[in-house]
Simulated scan of single mutants.
Amino acid sequence: MSSETFDLAVPSDIRVGAGRVAEAPDVLTGWGARRVLLVTGRSPDRAAPLVAALAERGLDVSTFAVPGEPTIDVVREGTAAAAGHDAVVGFGGGSALDVAKAVAVLAVSGADPLVHLEVIGEGRPITGPGLPCLAVPTTAGTGSEVTRNAVLAGDGVKASLRSPWLLPRVAIVDPDLLTGLPAATVAASGMDALAQVIEPFLSRRANPFTDALARDGIVRSARSLRPAFTDGMQDAGVRADLAVASLFGGLCLANAGLGAVHAFAAALGARSGAPHGAVCAAVLAPALAVNLRAVRERGSHETLLRLTELAVLLTGAVDAEPEDVADWVGDQTRALQIPGLATHGLADADTAEVVAAAQRASSMRGNPLDLTDDEVAEILARAR
Rank of each mutant, 00 (worst) to 15 (best):
A184S: 14
G143Q: 12
W165L: 06
G123M: 03
D155H: 15
T179I: 12
A102F: 13
L194T: 01
G141N: 02
H116R: 07
K101W: 01
C133D: 05
V151F: 13
V173D: 00
A111I: 04
G78Y: 12
V157Y: 06
G141E: 07
P125S: 11
S189T: 15
P200N: 14
G130D: 02
L178R: 02
I198C: 02
V186E: 07
P168R: 06
V157F: 09
L202I: 10
G130N: 01
A83C: 08
V74P: 00
D73Q: 15
D73C: 06
T138I: 09
I72L: 15
S163V: 04
G154L: 10
E122A: 15
E199N: 08
L178Y: 07
I198F: 08
L117N: 00
D98V: 09
V197Y: 02
S144N: 08
T71H: 06
A96D: 11
G68P: 02
T138S: 02
V115I: 13
E118F: 07
A87I: 05
L177M: 14
V146R: 00
V103C: 06
W165K: 09
L97F: 05
D86V: 01
G154Q: 04
G94V: 00
G84Y: 11
G190V: 00
P129L: 04
G156M: 09
T79R: 14
G121K: 09
R124Y: 06
D174S: 04
H116Y: 12
E69T: 09
G93E: 01
P113N: 05
L117W: 03
G143D: 08
V197Q: 12
A153Y: 12
L114H: 14
P175I: 13
I198S: 07
S160Y: 12
A83Y: 11
S189G: 07
L131W: 03
L97G: 01
D73T: 10
A184Y: 08
V99F: 08
A81S: 10
V105W: 08
L161I: 03
P129R: 10
V74C: 14
A82S: 14
G121F: 11
D174M: 10
T79H: 05
L166F: 03
G180R: 13
A183W: 01
